[in-house]
Write a protein that binds this DNA or RNA. Sequence first.
RNA 1: GGAGAGAUGGCAGAGUGGUCGAUUGCGGCGGUCUUGAAAACCGUUGACUGUUAAAGGUCCGGGGGUUCGAAUCCCUCUCUCUCCGCCA
Length: 423
Amino acid sequence: MLQVSYIRDNREQVLERLAVKNFKQPELVSEVIELDDKRRSTQTTLDNTSAEANAAAKQIGELMRTGKKEDAEALKVKTSVWKEDIKRLNEQLNAIEEELQQKLVLLPNLPHSSVPKGLTPEENEVVLENGAKPALPENALPHWELAAKYNLIDFELGVKITGAGFPVYKNKGAKLQRALINYFIDEAEKAGYSEVSVPLMVNEASGFGTGQLPDKEGQMYFVGEDKLYLIPTAEVPVTNIYRDVILKGEDLPVKNCGHTPCFRREAGSYGAHVRGLNRLHQFDKVEIVQIAHPDKSYEVLEQMSLHVQGLLQKLGLPYRVLRLCGGDMGFASALTYDMETWSAAQQRWLEVSSVSNFETFQSNRLKLRFRNAEGKTQLAHTLNGSALALPRIVATLLENNQTDKGIKIPDALVPYTRFEWID
RNA sequence: GGAGAGAUGGCAGAGUGGUCGAUUGCGGCGGUCUUGAAAACCGUUGACUGUUAAAGGUCCGGGGGUUCGAAUCCCUCUCUCUCCGCCA
């Protein structure tokens, strides 16, 4: 959520930045400012009336105590007018504030100055490409066929138990999941992140805090009876640890990592590109989250990007880094890097990580603040990234490392899998 | 699922109609003392809004009501805890 005071002071810049995100309702900006003007004037009137009423109430108490009952009664009569005014003004104020809030939550975050204009994924900027794309033999298989050939993943069984997009991992396929999770967590801890293990369901307040609610309800599974949402990413519970928290300046940056399954309805996404592990309703992911000082958050973003890249390098996977264009960015993000690995058998790039700086967009909703050098409270910046999401890593590992002898496990992972080959 | 208790400042915990944004303790910060630290002692210490700064206003789980005046009384919702039952 954007701060009203910022919108007021930087109206033109806000409009210009929203255009980069192809925001369709720029008129909301003026409406928000107008409502805030109304809010302020109503608030001032209410405050002044309350001040008079408070003074009178105090005076009545004084008169009662000193036995001047008649004077007190006279004053009581006068207060009835204020009382009505206060009630009416309060109702007005609540209505204005509610309307203001409703419009405010419709405004997406402002993109960073480095974000390219653009509407579609094709307009994302390739920041860098790293690692050689492997040349596979003629008879190379896509991962879903490899998964069947080596009995690693049973998609049909998942359909029986739950439905499409809920695969069953078996044998070395299952062990590979655990190995990757442990490997990613260990690497995150080496980089200074402390591990947390968090609930997989969250309440409405948490969903609002990180920006999934109110408008992205359709993407989350909802347990209606208890009004809880299955998390689409660990970002939600991990970041919400710090909801309504005022951190000390010296606590920054806060660094947390955690593994969770992630649940996504993925309503409306069907077709060839969802085959196999490419798009699932349930998958495992290790997430890294940082809460940073506003002056440092872009340094932190680069550092997080390098951490993710380091993982891909150690796994020997060719990858590229994209800076998302305005149209492809998430609602809450100010700058997002996507990391994609090259899937040699599918001959396409697969997104395996997304690293974002949300600046104060989330922290304003979360009321996540820190005490700055002047001792005043100030909104912190929040960042997060996948490090990494498993399914597409598994897909590229299987595809890119296939040989006549079987599938070669990267050296970095062998201590975790305790096998070198899937054969 | 049944029964009961509770929700107050970072934490603990007072406060049953006026001078209460709130006693006190712990914690935090500053100081005295000390070579330094601890202890002891002294002082200080909520958030939001508003203003150049003040003043003022709001907040004792949320919402509503009674009253000139509510942390305190009434209604309602939510959440938490304890015991019993069930269960990993």
